[in-house]
Design a protein around this nucleic acid. Sequence first.
DNA 1: ACACACTTACTGACTTGTAAGTAAGTTCGT
DNA 2: ACGAACTTACTTACAAGTCAGTAAGTGTGT
Lengths: 213, 213
Amino acid sequence: MVETARDDPRGRPAAERVQRPQARTTERREAVLKAAMNVFGARGYNKGALVEVAEQAGMTHAGVLHHFGSKEGLLVAMLKYRDGEEVAGVPARAQTEGPAFLQHLVDTVEENTHRRGVVQAYSVLSGESVTDGHPAHDYFQERFHILRAKIAGVLGEVSGSTDEQELIDAASSLIAIMDGLQVQWLLEPEAIDMPRILSRTIDELVDRLRATA
Amino acid sequence: MVETARDDPRGRPAAERVQRPQARTTERREAVLKAAMNVFGARGYNKGALVEVAEQAGMTHAGVLHHFGSKEGLLVAMLKYRDGEEVAGVPARAQTEGPAFLQHLVDTVEENTHRRGVVQAYSVLSGESVTDGHPAHDYFQERFHILRAKIAGVLGEVSGSTDEQELIDAASSLIAIMDGLQVQWLLEPEAIDMPRILSRTIDELVDRLRATA
DNA sequence: ACACACTTACTGACTTGTAAGTAAGTTCGT
DNA sequence: ACGAACTTACTTACAAGTCAGTAAGTGTGT
């Protein structure tokens, strides 16, 4: 008994739920989230309009607001959702460790070559996120912080190096290369071979770290 | 005689000039351009409003449109203007050659550490530029294309390598690192030492290329 | 005299968000 | 097993604001 008032009846209900959501609600919300990826990816958060998101999800913009409370709420939910599935094909939550993780990075980049929309959404949003008071600011700040630590750890394992600063620097470089290449690739796809460059860079980086270990 | 209708009476007049601009016009336009850097840098192109640009330049938004014709015209003019001066302190047009150019890159990044606004403008705009039909799309596409060729050339000179593909890949990496680091730095400045990482990367890159030369 | 460098005033197109209403689903007392 | 009471999942309609762009006018420099 004790009624345990579940304050989280599935997901992150913007309009506070008291009962539980209906059967098909989850998939409807997912449709909205996917539409948001499309729209925010194609036009950016600022220029992306709720009406267009709603249209693609088959409802009105008021319906979208019913689910996510505000445009900002939708963005945040979308960002979290994206994390949950990573890139469809790749195992997502599969938190690979050690050298496998570095291969996982290359695989993901390879996958991304066939998912322009995802890459575009990421590039646009991370760029926008540095503007004053952008709703995705905290998300990207945290994401980079965690990613750097994770990659530095793996690089340490693989190379045997224990120079923390150098490991973090190397991790920062790796992330920077991946992100920077995406923008160049989006603007001139034939000119940039992302997987090749990344995999080369990783090899060099590990070699360098091993040398000073 | 013959009236030689000069179709470019100084600058890029959006509202087509017939006579020649007045004395203080150039500096007024420059004030607008600088304001545009501020506003588009802080808010992005889409969210940046002409009224705010105008305010900072000491006129109304209609005055800005008088000079640049449209918001898009202002952006393009701003981008060109920025190229003309690069970063205030650094010699700008000084098209350094050879190894000096690589040092110039590091110096510029060092300078940028003290010019957050410039870095933010660049990051936001280049991110936005990949969206559908963005007015800065062509600018950044061309910029990356030229920069890659330039850097690849310099790397070839310095390392002695003649492997075109490898030189272009290395150039792409360098640019990607600089751009990618900027975003991370903007989000967490204390965590990222841009000049140190860049200069380290350049050394490694040159060494690698020299080895296979 | 006439173009230039603006300003004021206004329009129209979009935007996000809210309010109110409706149909369908869920829960629960009996 | 049934219906009242209530929620959820929307819709239509609207409020309120923001913004780029235009038109017409005013003063000033050459």
